[in-house]
């Protein structure tokens, strides 16, 4: 069943300069949809429209067949969102931040406390739960944001670079978690530049280029259509159209030139 649908989404910050143009896709329950594209292709703008932070200039976002703007509050109750940059309150401790988010989501205190403690322990943050976020590393902040997005057991997860700053173990846990949540019927939109991970965890992929959809399908289909052996090469072939190895050799040559 289709959970989230983007229908002809267009966003113009300035008149006649679209940041995203006519973007359409469907995300079904249990599907993990990869969202990839070069810098400036409109990924962040799309994410903001999908979370309801931005109003599309044209088109609409549908949740279970209804426009999200009709009942944004109900939509956000079902949404878990990991933004690109974890800009947390430095004066709160990790535990306090999660308690704040959980309470603002209306979760009952007793179950919230137990959930926070359990998730902090599972994400190896239990020893730091009463330290101020200001003292956290980038990876620790990222884990706090991830926990905050999972606290209310959302039906839809929108993850913008969720592995950014994570150590190897945490990254492995999160990758497996995404797969598990997908198998449990959650609809997941996964935005990343790390194509090896996208290839591993996503069942479908959208490739954006110059604010439009360039390709949409299963990773193996995309690789096949591009005639490449990996998603990374397929992406480079589709988006850049250049030879990455040659570019690397050219850079090295410039570096060593007098």
């Amino acid at each position: 069943m289709v959970a989230l649908e983007a229908r002809e989404l267009t966003k113009c910050y300035l008149p006649s300069v679209p940041a995203v143009r006519d973007l359409s896709f469907c995300l079904a329950e249990g599907q993990v949809l990869g969202f990839v594209g070069p810098n400036g292709s409109g990924k962040s703008t799309t994410m903001k429209m999908l979370t309801g932070l931005l109003q599309p200039t044209h088109g609409q976002v549908l949740w279970c067949g209804a426009a999200i703007q009709r009942d944004l509050l109900q939509y956000r109750k079902r949404l878990g969102y990991v933004p690109e940059e974890p800009d947390l309150y430095p004066f709160l401790t990790g535990w306090e931040y999660l308690e704040l988010v959980g309470t603002l989501r209306g979760l009952p205190r007793k179950s919230l406390t137990a959930k926070i403690d359990a998730l902090l322990a599972l994400f190896s943050l239990a020893p730091h739960r009463h330290s101020a976020v200001a003292s956290y590393s980038r990876g620790m902040r990222q884990r706090i944001v991830l926990i905050a997005s999972l606290l209310h057991d959302p039906s839809l997860l929108i993850l913008d670079e969720p592995l950014s700053g994570l150590d190897v173990t945490s990254a492995m846990i999160v990758k497996d978690l995404i797969k598990t949540l997908g198998e449990r019927g959650k609809a997941i939109l996964y935005c990343s530049h790390v194509l090896e991970v996208v290839e591993k965890v996503c069942s479908h992929i959208i490739v954006l280029r110059k604010r439009r959809t360039l390709a949409y399908g299963h990773p193996s289909e995309l690789m096949k259509s591009a005639g490449q052996s990996s998603l990374e090469h397929a992406f480079a072939h589709l988006v850049e159209g250049g030879d990455a190895a040659q570019a690397a050799r050219d850079i090295a040559a410039v570096m060593s030139s007098v």
Partner: peptide, 10 residues
């Protein structure tokens, strides 16, 4: 905005 806007708050 980054922390509160996406939560179910009016």
């Amino acid at each position: 905005y980054a922390n509160l806007a996406h939560l179910p708050l009016r």
